[in-house]
Amino acid sequence: MEMEFVKPMEIETRSFAIIEEHLEGVSIPENQRSIVKRVIHTTADFDYVENLKFSDHAVETALDALKQGAHIVTDTNMAYAGINKKSLHQLGGEAHCFMSDPEVAIEAKTRGVTRAMVSMEKACALGENVIFAIGNAPTALVQLDELIRAGKIAPKLIIGVPVGFVNVVEAKELIMQGTTPYIVAQGRKGGSNVAAAICNALLYQLYR
């Protein structure tokens, strides 16, 4: 099979055009559509048309937060690396991942809990304008739920897309049953790349 030569700068444009062709006739609110399309672009998985769930006004709330210089906290360095820092910084925001923080590691080992849980606790110090992008650790979602219920943090948005088989579905359902705005990949699918893709899709609605 002979491959068609496509210029590097045209690949993304062509890819999104192909995705849009597959979504013809699918009704998705426009501000959600761009997010779903970027996740599909990242994963080549059209299941996200059905799997990606948005709470009421989640996108609008997230965009308002980003306009005001929101912090984005991830649970993996991979998700952190994938977020477009230029776009985020232009809006006055900053990305964080505390997973490699020595103090977090020591605290987690001392208490016998995951670093993801301690990282969520550390994020409480960032204030109220925080978006969480969780792509790996369901324990991060469980801890966020507890912190929210205890009144220790009030995130503007939780992106809950950890991937896996153990407690993943349950942790996502916990977030969907709460009152915090969310974008959740229902079921077992997700990943750090999906978390970063959702962050970037939100950012690109404001600045690119």
Rank of each mutant, 00 (worst) to 15 (best):
E4L: 14
V6G: 02
E10M: 05
E10A: 03
E12G: 01
S15E: 07
F16T: 03
H22P: 05
E24F: 10
V26Y: 05
I28D: 06
I28F: 00
P29F: 05
P29G: 01
P29C: 04
P29M: 01
N31E: 13
N31H: 09
Q32H: 05
I35G: 02
K37T: 12
V39Y: 04
I40T: 12
Y48C: 13
V49G: 09
K53Q: 03
F54A: 01
S55F: 06
D56C: 13
V59W: 04
A62K: 04
A62E: 00
A62L: 04
L63Y: 06
L63H: 06
D64M: 05
A65F: 01
A65S: 07
G69P: 00
V73F: 08
V73D: 04
D75M: 11
D75F: 06
T76C: 15
N77Y: 06
N77L: 06
N77K: 12
A81Y: 12
I83G: 08
K85Y: 04
K86E: 03
S87K: 07
L88P: 02
L88Q: 08
L88W: 00
Q90Y: 00
E94S: 09
F98T: 05
M99W: 01
D101W: 00
V104Y: 00
V104S: 03
V104A: 00
A105T: 04
I106R: 08
E107H: 03
A108L: 12
A108T: 08
K109H: 13
R111G: 11
R111C: 04
R111K: 15
V113T: 10
V113M: 07
V113R: 11
V118L: 05
V118F: 01
S119Q: 09
S119T: 07
E121K: 11
A125D: 05
L126S: 11
E128C: 14
N129A: 11
V130D: 04
I131K: 02
F132M: 13
F132G: 08
A133D: 13
I134A: 10
I134Q: 14
A137K: 08
A137D: 06
T139V: 10
Q143L: 10
Q143D: 00
Q143T: 14
L144N: 07
D145G: 12
D145I: 00
E146P: 11
E146F: 12
L147V: 09
I148L: 13
A150F: 08
A150W: 01
I153F: 03
I153N: 02
A154Y: 02
P155R: 00
L157V: 02
I159M: 09
G160E: 13
G160Y: 11
G160T: 08
G164L: 05
G164R: 02
V169W: 03
V169E: 13
V169S: 12
V169K: 15
A171M: 02
K172R: 03
G178P: 11
G178C: 10
T179Q: 15
T180C: 15
P181S: 06
P181D: 07
Y182E: 10
A185S: 15
Q186D: 15
G187S: 15
G190I: 06
A197F: 01
A197K: 01
I198P: 00
C199V: 07
A201Y: 07
Y204L: 07
